[in-house]
Design a protein around this nucleic acid. Structure first.
Length: 221
DNA sequence: GTACTGATATGCT
DNA sequence: GCATATCAGTACC
C-alpha cells in the first residue's frame, strides 16, 4: 500500500534503548531537534504502536506567547508542564483532537515539545492497528497516503490511541516510551515557523519547528 | 488542486 | 461570548 523506496523508510537500525531521564532535561530546542529520528512506542491493549518522529515544535514556556503556559500560567490543563522534563503533556483541542507533547527542561520551567508527525513503523500489524484507531473510511484506506496515518498532531494522537488518560505519564513507563532509532543527519533537518499560530501572535514567526527534509509523512510543506 | 465549513473542550473576557 | 498548537468532508476549478 504505502511503501515507497526512499531512504527515509528503513529507520529501524540501532539498539532499542529508552532515552534516559537526562535527555528530557536539556534545553527545549535541543530536545525538539534531537527527538527527530527517535521512536515513539505506546503499548495499548497489549498491542504495540510505534513509529519514528519526523516533525516537532518547541514551545518555550514562560517566554513564549504561543505556549499555553506563557507567563507561567498555571491551570489544570497546563500543570504537568511544570514537572521536570520527561513526561507526557496531552491536551484536547478544538473539541475533537488530542495533541501529544514531551515535557522538557527543568522543574518549574513549563516547556514542552509538540510531536507533529511520525513515520509509522512499516509492519502490517502496526498499520492495521493505526488504521483502526483512526477510524478511516474504506475510500481513504484504499488510497492511503504516507501522511494520512500520523502526518499531523491530531492524527498521530488518534493513531497512537493517545488520550488525556496519559497526561503526566513518564516516558520511562513500560507502556509509553521513546527509544533510540537512527538519527537523521543535521543536513536533513529543516527549521521553520510553527504551524497554526495566529499571525497576530508575534511568536508565530519564531523558528521553532523542526522536520526531516522531504519526508513523506510531515504534516505541511 | 484550493476554499470553506463544522465538530465543540478549555481557558479567557 | 470568543479564540484556539486540527482535521475531514464537501464544493468547487
Amino acid at each position: 500500500m504505502m511503501q515507497k523506496t526512499t531512504k527515509h523508510f528503513s529507520p529501524n537500525t540501532s539498539s532499542n534503548k529508552k532515552l534516559p531521564p537526562s535527555f528530557y532535561l536539556q534545553d527545549t530546542i535541543e530536545v525538539a531537534r534531537q527527538l527527530l529520528g527517535k521512536r515513539l512506542v505506546h503499548i495499548f491493549n497489549g498491542k504495540k504502536l510505534s513509529g519514528v518522529i519526523v516533525e516537532t515544535e518547541a514551545y518555550l514556556g514562560a517566554q513564549d506567547p504561543a505556549c499555553h503556559s506563557f507567563g507561567y500560567k498555571k491551570t489544570p490543563r497546563t500543570s504537568v508542564m511544570f514537572q521536570p522534563g520527561g513526561c507526557a503533556y496531552v491536551y484536547f483541542i478544538y473539541g475533537m483532537y488530542h495533541c501529544l507533547n514531551v515535557v522538557s527542561g527543568p522543574e518549574g520551567e513549563p516547556e514542552a515539545v509538540l510531536i507533529r508527525a511520525i513515520a509509522p513503523d512499516p509492519n502490517e500489524e502496526n498499520y492495521r492497528q493505526m488504521i483502526a484507531n483512526r477510524k478511516m473510511s474504506f475510500k481513504k484506506v484504499a488510497a492511503l497516503h504516507p501522511k494520512d496515518l500520523c502526518g499531523g498532531p491530531g492524527k498521530l494522537a488518534q493513531a497512537f490511541a493517545i488520550t488525556r488518560s496519559l497526561n503526566g505519564l513518564s516516558f520511562q513507563s513500560p507502556t509509553l516510551y521513546i527509544e533510540e532509532a537512527s538519527s537523521f543527519a543535521d543536513s536533513d533537518i529543516v527549521t521553520s515557523e510553527r504551524i497554526g499560530i495566529s499571525p497576530y501572535n508575534e511568536a508565530a514567526f519564531w523558528p521553532l519547528r523542526f522536520y526531516v527534509k522531504g519526508h513523506p509523512c510531515i504534516s505541511v510543506t
